[in-house]
Structures are given as C-alpha cells and as structure tokens.
Computed example of a mutant assay.
Amino acid sequence: MSDRIFRVIVRGVFDGLTPDQRAGLLARAAEHDVLRAAFTPEGHLSYDLTARSAFTFRFQDSGEVEEDILDATERAESAAKAWLTERGYGYKNLRSQAEDLSQAPLGKRQRRAAAQRNG
C-alpha cells in the first residue's frame, strides 16, 4: 500500500516551434491555462505562449518510502518528454522539482485541526 503522495513539477521551454505548432498550442491555450492547473497521474500541461515560451507539467505519483520520489521524478520527466516528442514539439532547459507531501509542513488550519483531534 502506498502511503506517500509525491507532486512533481517538470518545467521547460518550447524550442523551435513551427508557426503551425504555435498556432495549434494557442488554439488549445484555454485547456492549458495555469488557472486550471492540477496535479494528476497523467500530468497536466500549462503554458501561456502569449507571455513566454515556457511550459509546466504537474504530476502526482505515490510510493511506499521516501526514496520512491526519485523514481516518481524520473517517470514524470519521461512522461513529459514523451508527450512533447509524440507531438513533435522541440524543448530545452527541462528541469524537475518534487515534493513528498508527507514531509510538507502543515499550514495554520491543518495544525489547528490536528490539535483539535489530539486534544
């Protein structure tokens, strides 16, 4: 049973888009707006080509132990590369950041709720 949730962000920059590719991405921009961004197992892509050529994929994965975050990061990077490559989109400067939610600090409301449960 997996008890750790990992959130992985893969960032990069579109590189060498053709005018048709750019037009296609702009036509689907509403689907990929940052305001609709979510962490999903299959990955959610967001970008704003009118502002800059950067993109972000957000992935959610899980694992048993803390070290599984490395495999989750590798899977996320591979999935992002595959998505881009399958569509013929060039990219550069790919980098990833992962977070184990079991290690994330609790927010004020979460601390208050935990104190009420325990006290």
Rank of each mutant, 00 (worst) to 15 (best):
R4I: 11
I5Y: 01
F6S: 04
R7G: 05
R7K: 11
R7P: 00
R7N: 15
R7S: 06
R7A: 08
I9F: 10
I9C: 08
R11N: 06
R11Q: 13
V13M: 12
V13D: 02
V13Y: 08
F14W: 05
F14V: 04
D15F: 09
D15T: 03
L17H: 07
P19T: 09
Q21L: 04
Q21K: 01
R22C: 03
G24Y: 05
G24C: 01
G24N: 06
L25C: 11
L25E: 02
L26C: 12
A27I: 00
R28S: 15
R28Q: 10
R28Y: 02
A29G: 04
A29D: 01
A30Q: 13
A30W: 07
V34R: 10
L35Q: 13
A37Y: 00
A37F: 02
A37E: 08
A37L: 07
F39L: 08
T40G: 00
T40C: 11
E42K: 09
G43M: 03
G43W: 01
S46E: 10
S46R: 03
D48V: 13
D48C: 11
L49P: 06
L49V: 08
T50P: 06
S53H: 12
S53A: 15
A54T: 15
F55C: 09
T56R: 06
F57A: 01
F59C: 00
F59H: 08
Q60A: 14
Q60D: 11
V65Q: 09
V65T: 07
V65R: 13
E66I: 07
I69E: 02
D71I: 12
A72L: 06
A72K: 00
A72M: 09
A72V: 07
T73L: 03
T73V: 09
E74K: 06
E74W: 03
A76P: 08
A76K: 04
E77S: 07
E77R: 07
S78D: 13
A79S: 15
A79L: 09
A79F: 07
A79H: 07
A80L: 12
A80N: 07
A80H: 09
A82Q: 14
A82K: 12
W83N: 05
L84H: 02
E86H: 10
E86G: 08
R87N: 12
Y89C: 06
Y91H: 03
K92Y: 08
R95V: 03
S96R: 07
Q97M: 13
Q97S: 13
Q97W: 13
S102M: 14
Q103H: 10
Q103G: 00
A104Y: 05
L106D: 10
G107E: 10
K108N: 09
R109G: 00
R109K: 14
Q110P: 03
Q110M: 09
R111S: 04
R111K: 13
R112D: 04
A115R: 12
R117V: 08
R117A: 13
R117I: 15
R117L: 14
R117G: 05
R117D: 14
G119V: 02
G119L: 00
